[in-house]
Amino acid sequence: AAGIGLLVGMNCPKAVKPRDVITGISGRSQILFLVTYVARYLDLLTNFVSVYNTAMKVFFIAASAATVYLMLFKFKATYDHNHDTLRVEFLIAPCALLALVVNHDFTPLEILWTFSIYLESVAILPQLFMVSKTGEAETITSHYLFALGSYRALYILNWIYRYYFDNFFDLIAIVAGVVQTVLYCDFFYLYITKVLKGKKIVLPA
């Protein structure tokens, strides 16, 4: 929530003058996150878990929709097309196929949930690809990526806890969550060794 809130805040027209909108954010990753949250939270109205759970689902969908709108429509001029080029079809298609094959239940809602779990684990790839192409990440982008990466990493601790105390585990969520966290690892290394020391992330050319 902090990461997404940061992104909306920094892209919000009131907060910053249009020319200051942070560059270097991948619009493609933001679209993948929006698809992830919509596909996963379709049970928003049918399955009430808790006020917190419902509130966060609404926040995730609203904030990522706002980010996509601000980036690709309102501030279209500052969106960096030529560096945000990873083909998302090559991410969406395999996730969709895998969701049809490997899932807990062959029902529309469960397939969409599974698709969303697989998609989330690769949704950051366009962003990481863009950072490698631009060769650097703005500090605020680094904080955003660190928050986004640690969210799923912390879930791994929660899954361990639930395995030992509730004797519950969901292998699909766990495998996808581990893959997702591994994808952030090289970024975490850069974040810890550079950004936290006040340096900018500049990748070797």
Partner: peptide
């Protein structure tokens, strides 16, 4: 079996 239970995580 997780599918029988509703997904209760984000």
């Amino acid at each position: 079996d997780p599918s029988k239970e509703e997904h209760d995580e984000l």
